[in-house]
C-alpha cells in the first residue's frame, strides 16, 4: 500500500534532514535537562554525554544530507575521542572530590560561590 500524500504522512514517511536534526535537538535538550536537574556529579556527566551524542548525530546527519562526504563523520569521530578522554578525566575529578568531601552533590560543592 502506498503512503497517503498527507503532510503527516509525508512527515512520518519521508524522513529527511529535519527529522534527524529534530532528534538531535531532543536528545540535546534531554541531556541539558539532565545536567540542570541532577544534583549528582555523575548524573551531570551522563547528561553531558547525551549532549555530545546529540551533537554527533547532527554532524553525521549533515554528513549524509549535505554535499561534502565524510567530513561530518570525521568530526564525529574526533568528538567521540574527546568525549572519552573527557569522561575519564571527569570521573577522576569526581572521585577526587568524593575522596575529600565525601559528597558529590554539586549544590554542596559551592567553593566558587560569589
Amino acid at each position: 500500500m502506498t503512503p497517503v500524500s498527507l503532510p503527516l504522512a509525508s512527515f512520518l514517511g519521508d524522513i529527511g534532514l529535519h527529522h534527524f536534526l529534530a532528534v538531535g535537538a531532543v536528545l540535546f535538550c534531554a541531556g541539558l535537562v539532565t545536567v540542570l536537574a541532577r544534583r549528582s556529579a555523575v548524573g551531570i556527566l551522563i547528561g553531558l554525554e547525551l549532549i555530545l551524542n546529540a551533537a554527533n548525530l547532527n554532524l553525521v546527519a549533515f554528513d549524509r544530507f549535505g554535499p561534502a562526504p565524510l567530513r561530518g563523520t570525521v568530526f564525529a569521530i574526533f568528538v567521540l575521542a574527546v568525549a572519552a578522554a573527557e569522561a575519564a578525566v571527569a570521573l577522576a575529578i569526581i572521585l577526587n572530590v568524593f575522596d575529600s568531601r565525601d559528597e558529590i552533590d554539586v549544590d554542596e560543592i559551592t567553593s566558587l560561590k560569589g
Binding site: 549528582s40 555523575v42 548524573g43 554525554e49 569526581i94 559528597e103
Partner: peptide, 14 residues
C-alpha cells in the same frame, strides 16, 4: 566508566 563512578560514589547521598 560511569557505572564504575556510580559504584565508587554509591555512598553519596545524592
Amino acid at each position: 566508566l560511569i557505572v564504575f563512578g556510580v559504584l565508587l560514589t554509591g555512598r553519596a547521598k545524592s
